[in-house]
Design a protein around this nucleic acid. Structure first.
Lengths: 338, 338
DNA sequence: CTTCGCCTGTATAACGTTATAGAGCCGCGC
DNA sequence: GCGCGGCTCTATAACGTTATACAGGCGAAG
């Protein structure tokens, strides 16, 4: 079908190996020969058959980024960054959607898929430390987010507890005392929610505020619909909070909607803070105060670590990296002066 | 490294070809032999090396979906559908981000990438009919959206003009007369915007309303920021519209934001309609009336057509398919009764 | 009894690449 | 004159799979 090394070799009157060396620079080639070969390549429009190359090399040049939901803008923004970073390193990034499904995550961990992918970046949701430890086969694995800790793999995440502290401190600083949390799961299956609840409780304690279980609302998933439903639940309990800290921006936006539907003003009656800094939050009414992770850093680091492992390079530094974050004040907690 | 056909063949005491036939069912295998081979496969945990398979078959099993922006929820939602449809057909879908860049689109059309991908689903933005016609090499191509018409490729899109008519009819029905349009590009490079403007003009005419150039606002891109800026521009002209029809939901959401910032009420002062039915519009304040394309149908159809072409099947029906859409009334044009 | 065809299984040649062993040539030093 | 190392380049064996040609056995048809 396409133009192969053989065609170039014939045209240039050299051997296959020489053409390969011109293309890959694995061994030096004489200047005259190189030019003849290069000319043949240009004329015939040769591009290597990656399948064959990778069969020979044992690598496919494909890495995967598996996220629980593509439609969460946080992951979409992360994906854009990771795709471009991977391209810069000569890799193609494949998106996988686990749909926050346990089976899907397990299948990715050590399924047949691994045979075609050089490495995997996974944002785990339904699996834990044991499942990751049980994995034996498959290429390098980089974990992102707060799902799994203490495993022998690279791990990139923000410091969730510190992030919660920052959010609560901000709410306390603007005079809120009855601060609710939305996003704790019923089961033990979403680790990051637990961490965020822990940060919430610790930060409340640090501020001298009591922890009230009635101000914690569970959700099944972490989308706008879940946030809206949980906020309505919270309001139905009769004990209205004066602030809400949400598991992420989507949940926060759902909460904003529920508050509007119930006739409460934000931030006057209830202040709202999310996490992720997705673009939606800059255009919601009111705009959303949020904890902004450094998505660029997370995406770049995850891809670089993975590629380094694939290529067998020594990777300096600890396995687990915490990336920076900052609090962005917007209307949902009252703007400082703009 | 992994377990190969050879290992299985040795274990089961048969030839390579027989194992291959058990795995692929290309040729019948005796029942006793089949069982022995199957047992060896289970014991050793064999899974085929896809690289080698595809080198031999001449296909990679990869198809690409190239969109102008991953962070537009419309494309994220479409991608989720397409990924799952492709998986069902035994293909892996790779996301490509053209970033609405002309060079990126051209590179995808006949670049080296094609060598590793069996086929491409492209949402063109900056290239036109000529560029697509100029393409000679590369696998099957399916176009989605309204960028390019009249080319010898499958094409899936909604009827843009009809969609515009529906939107305008709705605005007229609720008593609006000064209907603006946001999203026309300056250059000729975004075809769908022109079509939507055409639909807008025709529908105005059909409703007996004059076309006023001052009510058409250009944007460079089609995100929230662009919508916001364009809406501010429109308001700055002093000739306030009583309704806005936006190029898509993101632009509409940007416009909502600008209207709020300028102190106008929606829908009382200005009604707003978008296109895409992204989830954001169901949670904005106010919620967004929109033209909802059948994303599931578009995603499924695009993948199915592409796979059919790859596998050389006869594809019935015309190349160009128009998928259904419907108008969803929400708060931004005044809810009918809820 | 042959011939044909079917059934089951085998041997082997691709697919396009890269890595390895080695061939030819030249110049240098003994 | 000869051995030796360095420089180019070539020939070829993999990588793991699938498709093709073929071999052997056996029953049915001639």
């Amino acid at each position: 079908m396409g133009v192969s090394l053989k065609d170039i070799a014939q045209r240039a009157g050299v051997s296959l190996a020489t053409v390969s060396n011109v293309v890959n620079g694995y061994r030096p080639v004489g200047e005259r020969t190189r030019q003849r070969v290069q000319q043949a390549i240009d004329e015939l429009g040769y591009s290597p058959n990656l399948g064959a190359r990778h069969l020979r090399r044992g690598r496919t040049g494909l890495i995967a980024l598996a996220v629980p939901e593509l439609t969460n803008p946080y992951f979409a923004e992360l994906a854009e960054i990771a795709i471009s970073e991977a391209a810069g390193l000569g890799y193609t990034l494949v998106m996988e959607n686990t749909a926050a499904d346990r089976e899907a995550e397990l299948a990715l961990l050590d399924g047949t898929r691994q045979r075609v992918i050089d490495g995997l970046i996974l944002s785990p949701v339904r699996i834990g430390r044991e499942e990751v430890l049980a994995r034996t086969a498959g290429g390098p694995l980089v974990l992102i987010g707060e799902g799994v800790y203490d495993v022998p793999h690279d791990h990139i995440a923000i410091d969730n507890v510190a992030a919660s502290h920052a959010a609560i401190r901000h709410l306390v600083a603007i005079g809120r005392r009855r601060i609710a949390f939305i996003g704790a799961t019923a089961g033990g299956d979403r680790q990051s929610a637990h961490l965020r609840v822990r940060g919430y409780r610790e930060a409340l304690a640090a501020a001298g505020l009591p922890y009230r279980p009635l101000l914690v609302a569970r959700t099944d998933a972490f989308g706008r619909l879940d946030g809206r439903r949980a906020m309505h639940d919270l309001l139905a309990r009769g004990d209205r909070p004066d602030a809400v800290f949400a598991y992420n921006d989507l949940v926060a936006i759902g909460a904003l909607r529920a508050l509007a539907e119930a006739g409460h003003r934000v931030p006057e009656d209830v202040a709202v803070v999310g996490i992720d800094d997705i673009e939606d939050g800059r255009f919601s009414a009111p705009t959303l105060t949020t904890i902004a992770p450094d998505k660029r850093e997370i995406g770049r680091l995850a891809v670089r670590r993975l590629v380094a492992r694939i290529e067998g390079a020594e990777v300096a530094g600890p396995l687990s990296v915490q990336t920076p974050f900052r609090l962005i004040r917007r209307e949902s907690t009252g703007t400082p002066g703009g």
